[in-house]
Design a binder for these strands. Structure first.
Lengths: 195, 195
DNA sequence: CCTACCGATCGGTAGG
DNA sequence: CCTACCGATCGGTAGG
């Protein structure tokens, strides 16, 4: 019984993982359940023994990584870091998510519009909170003269979207190592914030 | 006859404009020709008197703005600017495209994957050239000590994707003016490059 | 620019 | 997990 459940769970995991890969490659609406079934190696109808609907898969992909991002940000409260160090930590976290969980991160960032009404509203509100929390850190950093005066909103948008550029590295020739790219982006983004 | 042609051209323009708006909002695959026809005010079948196919519309939207970006970059050659000034000029251009031609710019950046094989290959190769050209300017700027040493590839990716962050400003509450955002982003991105 | 319609494909269900 | 199939919708065409 325990074994059967483990098997079932891992088949569902496989489906979600393949889905993330296909949603990233072709986008959510352009990926059919038949395509997905084929890449898993079963018939389309059989998918529904493991998942409830196409959009449930999208939700799972997006919220499991979005939750991790929120957790990392929340954990900074008690870490005893300066404001600038906190921003660096968040930035590194996003860069590493982009490298280590490329498919999931990409789907979250590019396919969230296709969430259904309620999860969509949840996601948007989570993200607004996330941005506001980062803005708060930057505002505090400016007040304490760790960070040079800049519109906090712009700093946050710039950092969070800059990371998306690394997607092209992932696609194309990999001339550079992940560490090299991370350090250079940190130098640029965090160096540009220092007071 | 001239008048009839003008009329016909402007109807096609209307279709393409409405399409850009809907592709931005819902994505290319999730936008149906029936949706588009309704927003134009005609039947779906009637669209085909003005356009050849759904994907032709996408091509038009993407390449007319992509061409303008390439033109701006090419025009910098004879402008007598320093390398850093050239990068600033490119960055400002993208920020302004984001504000002034929001729908088109957004579609280019987010929906290019849905181009058909040949136009897709053309777009990818254009973009690779664009990135390499910017890398060349930054490399030259580093050599001449205008720009601080940083991986040029990372600088280009960071600048080009940072601009995408402004999309959220466009969506949500508009607490700031376009000028304010542009100047702050330039301060951050170009200030962070100065040697 | 419309009515009428095509074949293909979609997400998903029934029943075993 | 499969076969068989549902109603809905897709991009696009014929013919006027």
């Amino acid at each position: 019984m325990a074994k059967a459940q483990r098997k079932k769970a891992s088949k569902k995991d496989l489906i979600v993982q393949k889905a993330a890969s296909m949603f990233r490659e072709k986008g959510f609406p352009a990926t059919s359940m038949r395509d997905l079934a084929e890449s898993v190696g079963i018939e389309a109808a059989s998918l529904y023994n493991h998942i409830q609907s196409k959009s449930e898969i999208l939700q799972q992909i997006i919220f499991r990584i979005s939750d991790d991002c929120n957790k990392q940000l929340a954990d900074l409260d008690n870490a005893g870091l300066t404001n600038l160090q906190k921003i660096e930590s968040v930035t590194r976290f996003h860069i590493q998510m982009m490298f280590q969980r490329f498919e999931d991160y990409h789907v979250m960032i590019n396919e969230w519009i296709h969430l259904e009404a309620q999860p969509l509203a949840d996601f948007i509100s989570q993200r607004r909170n996330y941005v506001q929390c980062m803005e708060g850190i930057i505002t505090a950093g400016i007040k304490e003269k760790e960070i040079k005066p800049i519109l906090p909103y712009i700093a946050v948008l710039t950092i969070l979207s800059a990371v998306r550029g690394l997607e092209f590295w992932h696609r194309s020739q990999k001339h550079y190592t992940a560490e090299e790219l991370e350090e250079n982006m940190i130098t640029y983004l965090i160096g540009g914030l220092k007071a």
